Amino acid sequence: MRTLASFAAPPLLLLAGTGSASAHVKWFCTYDVAGQPRGLEQVLCTDFEWLTGLALVCLMVGCLAEGTPLGTALLNALDRVTSRIRTDTELLVRCTLGFFLVSLWGLGGIILTPELKTDASWISWLQLAMATCLIWRRTMPLTGLGIAFLYGFATAQYGFFHLADYPVFLGVAAYLVLSGLGISPLGLRPLDLVRYAAAVTLMWASVEKWAYPEWTAPLLAAKPQMTMGASPELFMQSAGVIEFTLAFSLIWTPLVRRVAALILTGIFISAVFEFGKVDAIGHSGIIVVLLGIAADDARRAVRIRDVVAAPAWFGGALAAFLALYYLGHEVLFGTAIIQGSWPVI
C-alpha cells in the first residue's frame, strides 16, 4: 500500500500548474458517450478513497478556518481585492459572453460549445444576434432565452446525457434573464443560480474523468509533462477528485466557495496556455462566472455544524453524482454499472 504522501503529491502538483483538470477532453480527443464506462469497482479503489479522504480533510480545514479571526481577515482581504469585479460583475459577464458568442459566429457550425457541430447556418447568425442583445441591459433576457433555446436544440441533436456536461449554460441563461428583469425569485440572487449550475457542471465533469480516463490518454501521451511524474491512472483520479471537491465547495460556506472559485479560475486560465484559442473561447463563460463568485461579498455566520455536516454532504453529493451518471448511462445506453466483482477494501 502506498504512503499518504504518494496520494497527496499529485493533487498538490496538479494545482500548481496543470491544465488537464480543466481542459474539456471532448474538444480535443475522440470520445464515445455511449461507450462502456469504467466499472464502479475500478473507480472506487484504494487510491480513490485516499484521495477523497484527503480532499475532505482540506474541506473541513477550510470550514474551521472560516469561523476564526484568520477567516474573517481573509474575507476582508478578498472583499478589498475584488471590489472592482464585484461592482462590475454584470458588465463583465455581458462583455465576456459577447466575446464568446461573436467568436462562435466567427468560427461557424458550432452550437454553444466546440464539439457540438451543426450544419444549420442560421445558428451562427442567431448567436451573433444574441451577442448584440447584450449591449443593452433591457435586451439581456433575450440572450438568456436564446441560450436556453440553443441548449434545448443541442439536447435534441446530441441527447440529454451529452448535454448534462453543460448545465452551466442554463445557469448563465437564468442569470441574464433575472438580471435583466431585476428579480430574485424565492430570494435567490441570479449569481446564486449560476453558481449552483457551475457546481453541478463541474461535479458531473469530474465523474466523467473517472468513468472515461482513456479519453484523455492521447493528451497525456502528447503532453506527458502534465502528469508531473504520476501515473496516468493516478493523475486522472486526482484531477477528478480535485475538480469534484472544488465544485462542491462552490455551494458551501462563503470563504470556502470564494477560495475554490479563485483556484478553479487559475486552473481554467492555465489550461488556455496549454490548449490555446479553442479552450479560451470555450471556457470564457465559466471563467467570468467564477470571477463573479470569487468577488461575491455575501456572508453568513459559519457554525460548527457546517464543519460537522461537511463529510455527510460531500459524501452524499459524491454518491449522488456517481449514481446519476452510471444509472443514467445504463438506462440510456444499456451499459453495465459493475463489471466483475467488487474489490476487497
Rank of each mutant, 00 (worst) to 15 (best):
L54Q: 05
V307F: 06
F275V: 01
L12T: 02
T201Q: 06
L181T: 05
Q157C: 08
M60K: 11
Q157E: 11
L318G: 07
I111L: 11
T3D: 13
P10Q: 04
L176Q: 05
W122Y: 12
G67S: 02
T82M: 07
A247E: 01
L318K: 04
L219D: 00
L142K: 09
I251V: 13
G229H: 10
L145S: 09
I304T: 06
R258W: 10
T201V: 01
T227C: 06
L163H: 00
L322N: 04
L262K: 00
L14P: 08
T155Y: 11
P311W: 03
A280Q: 08
D88R: 14
F160I: 10
L116M: 08
T18H: 07
L318M: 05
G292T: 00
L134I: 07
S184F: 00
A21H: 09
W125I: 08
S20F: 12
A295D: 03
P213Y: 02
G266F: 07
L64R: 15
T155F: 01
R305C: 15
R80M: 02
W204V: 07
G98M: 01
L97P: 02
W204R: 10
Q237T: 12
T253G: 01
F161Q: 11
A211P: 07
T245C: 09
M226I: 13
E330S: 15
R38E: 02
P213C: 08
G71D: 05
E274A: 11
P141Q: 08
L163M: 14
E330A: 15
L116T: 01
F235W: 11
E208F: 14
L91Q: 13
K223V: 10
I263M: 06
E208S: 08
P69Q: 04
L322H: 12
V331R: 13
D47Y: 00
W210M: 07
G180Q: 00
R94H: 09
L145V: 03
A301M: 12
G106L: 14
F149T: 08
L178D: 04
G171V: 01
T155V: 09
M1G: 09
L64F: 06
S206M: 04
L126R: 07
G328M: 10
R38S: 10
A271P: 11
W342P: 07
I251E: 06
M203H: 08
R258A: 05
F268S: 02
A320G: 06
W125T: 13
W122L: 15
F169C: 03
D297S: 15
T52S: 07
R84H: 13
S83G: 13
S270K: 13
D165Q: 14
M203Y: 09
T143P: 02
L178A: 00
P185Y: 05
W50Q: 12
W50R: 12
R80V: 14
I147Q: 11
I287S: 11
S184E: 04
I263S: 03
A131P: 04
V177P: 10
A309H: 06
A120K: 15
